[in-house]
Each structure stands twice: as structure tokens, then as C-alpha cells.
Computed example of a mutant assay.
Amino acid sequence: MSDHAVRTVLSGMSYTECPRWHQGRLWFVDFYLHQVYSVAEDGSDLRVEADVPAQPSGLGWLPGGDLLVVSMKDAKILRRTGDGSLVEHADLARHVAGLPNDMVVDGQGRAYVGNFGFDLMSGDDIETAPLLRVDPDGSVTKVADDLWFPNGSVITDDGLLLVDETFGNRVSAFDIAADGSLGPRMDWAKFGELPTARDLATAVPQGVVVPDGCGLDAEGCLWIADASHGRVVRVREGGEILDEVRPGTGVFACMLGGSDGTTLFMSCAPDFDEHARSAAREAQIKSVTVSVPRAGRP
């Protein structure tokens, strides 16, 4: 494993998620400050890009440049128009049993969106969940089912959708058809077996890797935030861990970016507990330099 020097990009946040490199800046959300931000690579020039009172999550951009953002607690996707206002892009409420969370948007403007499937913060038992596709006109279609907390997702340059299943010990892959439909689920990386029980106290410790947010590199490997083990791991197809970074705290999302694509940004916090994080300003964005640049979407 490489010896990475970890740098602090930004401090004093509540709980950052969904980092994206876009137009020369790092974009991200803060769940409990209810805002979308962007910041320069070195942590300067922090800007508020949108206010999302019902808790922002996944980010993406339509081909024309409009920003899409998941609004978790009212189960919507919002679109930021050219004048900066937010309008409803899609209503997901009839299609999800838990909060919608991360997403990835393809080159045609189709958003693939995961959701919790159950009430995580109340400690309910795990229920599997569907993956949704939201087309540019806002229509919603279920494109996969029975996923164990579909979370961080990427689309490879050759059109494969990779989806982290946070409680499933795996990253799943789907071929994307021309019409946006998905082929059968395949194991892209398998770290262990599915949980033997659905209660969190049993299931979470069985996670060899608990994959949360992720980003793709130009060698086809995924950098994955391991939400239970305080690390980010670089994984090749099949599940072999090639490298890891331990930023010294919990880490729940990551993305490659920077001027040459080799800065790995990490969303860090002591834990993911809603009550603890919303009451504190302990979250940080940290970074390291890696050797292989970014690829794919987002």
C-alpha cells in the first residue's frame, strides 16, 4: 500500500457528501447545512451554489449544463436553471421506501438514483431497494431491484454502470442499453457474502468493505469510501484491494479531480449519525495525490 500524505482542504462542515469535480472546482453537498457548495482545489473561494432545505444529496449535470440535485427528505430531484432558481425535475416519492441518496447522470441526461430502502437513522432492519432511472423529461422508471442499499455509482467510459451496495459486501455492474434500460445485475467486486441477518447490529460487522461513495480512475479501478473502516480503498474488478488511504477519521465519499485529475478528495466525519453530525461542525474534506487520474462519470 502507498504512503499517502493526507491534506485538509476544508473544515468546519456538518456532514459533506457526493463530491464532484466540475468545471475546475470541487462541488459537494452538506446534508445538515442544507446546501450545495463548490470550492477551489486548494479549499479557497467557498461558494454556496444552492439551498436545499429538505437535505441535498447526489449531484449531476444535464447536457445543457443545468445542475441536478437529490432532495432527500421530500424525495425529489431538483434542477437549477440558468437564473439560479431551483425547480422540481422529478418526484420520486411513489418509487422509494427510504430516502433517495446518491446518483450518477449519463451523457443523455438520464439520472440513475439509489435509495436507502428503509429508515436507517431509526435503526430499522435492512430492506433491499430499487435503482431508479429519471429521464430528462422527469419521468421515473425502476431499472433494477433487490439491491442492498444502492449508493455511490459511476458510469465507465464504455457504458457500464457500477453501483455500490453499502450493506451487500459488493459492487454491482449493469450494462446500459441504448434506451437507458439495464441488463441483469453482475458482480463487479465481491468482498464477502450477503449479511446473514437484516438487523444492523448483525449486518454491519459482516461488511468486509462497506462501500459508500466512489470514483473511477483511468485504469478502470474504483476508489471506494469504506464507511465502516475509516478508509478509502482502490479496487480492481473482481474485488482485489490495490491501495488504501486512512485519513484518520470516518470517510463516506470520495472523488478524483483537481487540475490533472489525480487529487482524491474525501468526505470525512467522525460518523454518519444524523443527530450527532447536525449538532456539530466536525466534518472535513481531505485529499491525497494519487498516480492514476480520473475517468468516467461523474
Score class of each variant (00 low, 15 high):
Met1Glu: 05
His4Lys: 09
Val6Ile: 15
Leu10Asn: 07
Ser11Asn: 04
Gly12Gln: 09
Met13Asp: 06
Met13Cys: 15
His22Ile: 05
His22Ser: 01
Gly24Asn: 06
Val29Phe: 10
Phe31Lys: 10
Leu33Gln: 14
Gln35Tyr: 01
Tyr37Phe: 15
Tyr37Gly: 02
Val39Trp: 06
Asp42Glu: 12
Val48Trp: 02
Glu49Pro: 01
Ala50Ile: 11
Ala54Val: 07
Pro56Asn: 10
Ser57Tyr: 11
Leu59Ser: 00
Ser71Gln: 13
Ser71Glu: 15
Ser71Asp: 13
Asp74Val: 14
Arg80Glu: 06
Ser85Asn: 08
Ser85Cys: 07
Ser85Glu: 13
Val87Gly: 04
His89Asp: 07
Ala90Leu: 09
Arg94Glu: 15
Arg94Trp: 05
Val96Asn: 04
Pro100Gln: 10
Asn101His: 03
Gly109Arg: 04
Val113Ala: 09
Gly114Asp: 05
Gly117Gln: 08
Gly117Pro: 05
Gly117Asp: 08
Asp125Val: 04
Thr128Trp: 03
Ala129Val: 10
Leu132Ser: 05
Asp137Cys: 12
Gly138Leu: 08
Ala144Trp: 01
Asp146Gly: 06
Ile155Pro: 00
Ile155Phe: 01
Thr156Cys: 06
Gly168Leu: 11
Arg170Ala: 14
Ser172Leu: 07
Gly180His: 08
Ser181Asn: 09
Arg185Asn: 00
Trp188Asn: 01
Lys190Tyr: 02
Phe191Trp: 08
Glu193Tyr: 00
Pro195Lys: 04
Thr196Ile: 02
Thr196Gln: 12
Asp199Ser: 11
Leu200Pro: 02
Thr202His: 12
Pro205Tyr: 11
Pro205Arg: 06
Gly207Met: 15
Cys214Glu: 10
Leu216Ser: 01
Glu219Lys: 03
Gly220Phe: 03
Asp226His: 06
Val232Lys: 01
Gly238Ile: 11
Ile241Val: 15
Asp243Gly: 05
Arg246Gly: 09
Pro247Leu: 13
Thr249Met: 14
Leu256Asp: 05
Leu256Cys: 08
Gly261Glu: 08
Thr262Ile: 03
Thr263Leu: 08
Ser267Val: 09
Ala276Thr: 14
Ser278Tyr: 01
Ala280Ser: 14
Ala283Asn: 07
Ala283His: 02
Ile285Tyr: 06
Ser287His: 01
Val288Met: 04
Pro298Asp: 15
Pro298His: 10
Pro298Tyr: 10
